[in-house]
Structure formats: structure tokens, C-alpha cells
Nucleic acid binder design. Sequence first.
DNA 1: AGGAAGATCCGCT
DNA 2: GCGGATCTTCCTG
Length: 222
Amino acid sequence: MVLPVRRPEPARAALRARRLPRSFYARDALSVARDLLGKLLVHRGRGGTVAARIVEVEAYRGPEDRAAHTYGGRRTPRNEVMWEREARLYVYFVYGIHFCANVVAGGVGVPEAVLLRAAEPLAGLAIARDRRGPGARDEHLMRGPACLCKALGLDGAHNGADLLRGPLGLLDAPPVPDAEVGRGPRIGVDYAGDHAARPWRFWVSGSPAVSRPRPAPGAQVS
DNA sequence: AGGAAGATCCGCT
DNA sequence: GCGGATCTTCCTG
């Protein structure tokens, strides 16, 4: 009699990885953004755990970045978390409907962050589907910053959440090689003048979960 | 005190 | 491709 062979489940193995150390976050947002590609975002919430592989991010670089909430050194109740210690989550509300989540980079007084724009669902698919409702294909459950938050159950209550402890975490995973990294201008920041053209958006080429796989026509891609 | 715009998504045409 | 939904935040007067 042949025993049923339980093939090692890739997600389970991946979720055993350690959390990224604080030093990972204590760098400029561009480096953190690039290196976040391929890492795993995990939320152990009520109803179970949802995990995802990050495939699209954007760097927001503090006071000098016209597209950032902290442009010009503005410090407000909303963006307060960006000014504090790195390795926390900055969640804000947009368009009266959606939440977007950022990973705080830099350090105390260095208000930089990385917007999480898209991810590939890895575990907790049933929960993610339920949160998103009918209509979305699995590979699109977390395509776009607001969709990502919804599928992972992130909202304003998670603003300031520590990523080194507690139910929210970022786990280490193999780096995405340069050859597979796409780069281009950020989305939805046309108001930022010349800063809008800066190629501070990074994505994993070929991932079906990337929200906009191609850079805008004529955009500088470097 | 008021208003304008927003780091978006989805459905319809 | 376009626009509506929906409300917080911040700047101006």
C-alpha cells in the first residue's frame, strides 16, 4: 500500500522564515523599496493568517520628495508615523474609500516610506477572497495598493503597527534578481511636477499581480 | 469656517 | 477610456 505522499507545501516552508531585522528598514527608501520585492507580508489576524509575496512597491523620500506626504517637512497627525522609528506600518485613507499601506524606512526624523502596491497571495486564499468579495481572480486579489490592504485585512487600526513583533510582519525570502526587476515612474503623482518622472516604482517583471506592468509611454525607465 | 484635491477601484460604454 | 463613489486632510482666507 502506498501512503499518500504529502508534498512539501511551498507556502508553509516560506512562512517559516525569520522576520526582516530592523537594519533592513534603517536605510533610504529607494534601497528598502528595491529589496522589499520578493519578501513576504504576513498578517495573522482574526479568522486566520493571510500571507503574500510583494511584487510592486514605490519609494517616497521625505521632505525633498514633492510626491510624499512629508514633502517640505510637513509633520501632521496623519503622517506622524513616517517621522518616527523605522520598521512600522504607515496606513492612510484615500478617496473616501480606500486604505493604502506603507513600510516606514529611514529612521527617527527621516520621514521616508515604501508604498506596498501589489502582492501575490501565498496563504490564506479563502480569507482573502472573502474580504475582496466575488469577481476578482486569485492573482488579482492584491493588485493595487487598496486591494492589497483589503485582501490582507489592513486598515486604519494598523497605522503604526510594529513589523518586528505582533500580528503583522515581513519575512525574509530570496531576493529578486536585477534582471527580473522592472522600474519606472510612480503612479498617480502627476501633481508632483518633475518629481513625478523619477523612477521610484519597482516591480517584479512578469508577475500577474503587478498593477500596471508597463511604464507610461515615453517615461524614463532606468 | 470652507473648500479642493487626493500615493484608488470598479463598472460601464 | 471615463467618471462616480465618498470623506479625510490640509491649506487658505
